[in-house]
Amino acid sequence: MPVPVQRDPELTRARLAGWLRDHLAARDVTVGPLTVPATAGFSAEILLGDATWTERGRTRTVPLAVRVAPAVHRIFPDLRWAEQVGMQTALARAGVPVAPVLGYEHDAGVLGAPFVVMSRVAGTVPADLPSYHREGWLADASPDRRRTMWLAALTAMSRVHRLDPQTVGASPAPSGDLDFYAGHLEFFGVSGDTDVLAALDWLRAHRPPAPASPRPLWGDARLGNIVFAGDRPAALLDWEMTDLGRPESDLAWFLHMDRFLSDGVGVPRLPGLPPQTETERWYAELLGRPLEHLAYHQVEAAFKFSVITARVVRLLELTGVMPPGSDFPLHRNATALLRRCLANPEWISPARV
């Protein structure tokens, strides 16, 4: 569900053209009409368009994706814009499939907020709304193709987890820590949510030790954040939740988001997508070790997603995308799934908590 763009399109194009001219040593820069993807959300404002310029005597037309930091309505209280752009740039150098970064601007004076300019990666992305389990190109694919894409997505994600944190400059993020969410319950709008508070108590009581060898994390790891070119991931998107920690945290989020878009919204899971037991075996092989504390991290994923969905619903109402009191089911469905996870952690994973 896209956030309405409240900016002058012609002024934005002119300022982007000027910025590209100054930062790419290009001449005769023009930026075409800008659009917003239907899947854009509150983590950033996404602008899509083509830019043409002359460089070393040759004219180039480059499809662009411009990601502008949220200036007013934020999902998280901390922006961490430089960190997520830095992670994406470092991952590209390490050979992880991400959108190539052409440049980054920290000065809010150009577009009203910091932004990053990327080459737009061609391909298709599984939709969250409506769920890719319900309709769309993934639902129309063969079971064999779905299986291939699922395993390819996990393989791409594991490339992040196998990197040395020092190679990409990864560091622990406040938004990845349980105490961060506990300290910002009012900001997210869940300070009186009994399901969220019960999950927080459970997580505190069962918190595992810190990983001996923390690894870079994607954070928002899910099929809906992958551009697929055919059956392979061409780009892993959205690094606003990037962190340093246990790879099982990403795997848990990946599994929970898929479960939410099927069980969580009352839709049968697509045939061909490997079950969790097979996914766990596959990912353990990719990591080269047994999985640790996966059930705990899946409860954690359900908790964090419920906290985030409360904030999203609140922002939908604040921005007028949804009228107040419209009973948009996103948060209600998220907390219903959280209750199921909390009632029986073994339901979500045969691994030990």
Rank of each mutant, 00 (worst) to 15 (best):
S43P: 11
S43C: 08
S43M: 06
S43W: 04
A44K: 12
L47Q: 04
L48H: 10
G49P: 06
G49K: 04
G49R: 04
G49N: 03
D50I: 01
A51I: 01
W53G: 01
T54C: 09
E55W: 12
R56H: 12
R56L: 08
R56Q: 14
G57C: 09
R58K: 13
R58S: 09
T59Q: 12
R60W: 13
T61P: 03
T61H: 07
V62Y: 05
P63Y: 06
L64C: 04
L64F: 07
A65S: 11
A65P: 08
V68G: 01
V68Q: 04
A69G: 10
P70V: 07
V72P: 05
H73V: 11
H73C: 10
R74I: 05
P77I: 04
P77Q: 09
D78A: 11
R80W: 05
E83T: 12
V85I: 10
G86P: 12
G86A: 07
M87V: 15
M87L: 15
Q88P: 06
Q88T: 08
Q88V: 02
Q88N: 09
A90F: 07
A90C: 09
A90L: 08
A92F: 02
R93S: 05
G95Q: 04
G95Y: 05
P97M: 01
A99C: 06
V101W: 00
L102D: 08
L102S: 08
L102M: 11
L102W: 12
G103V: 00
G103Q: 03
Y104T: 14
E105V: 03
A108V: 04
A108H: 11
G109M: 06
G109Q: 14
V110R: 03
L111P: 02
L111K: 02
A113Q: 06
P114S: 09
F115D: 02
V117R: 01
M118W: 00
M118I: 00
M118L: 10
M118V: 00
S119G: 11
R120F: 01
R120M: 00
A122Y: 13
G123P: 10
G123R: 09
V125Y: 12
P126W: 13
D128Y: 13
L129P: 02
L129Q: 15
S131N: 13
Y132V: 07
R134Q: 15
E135L: 10
G136N: 11
W137M: 09
W137V: 04
L138K: 11
L138T: 04
A139I: 07
A139W: 11
A139P: 09
D140A: 15
A141K: 12
A141I: 06
A141G: 08
S142E: 15
S142H: 14
P143Q: 06
P143D: 05
D144C: 05
R145A: 15
R145H: 13
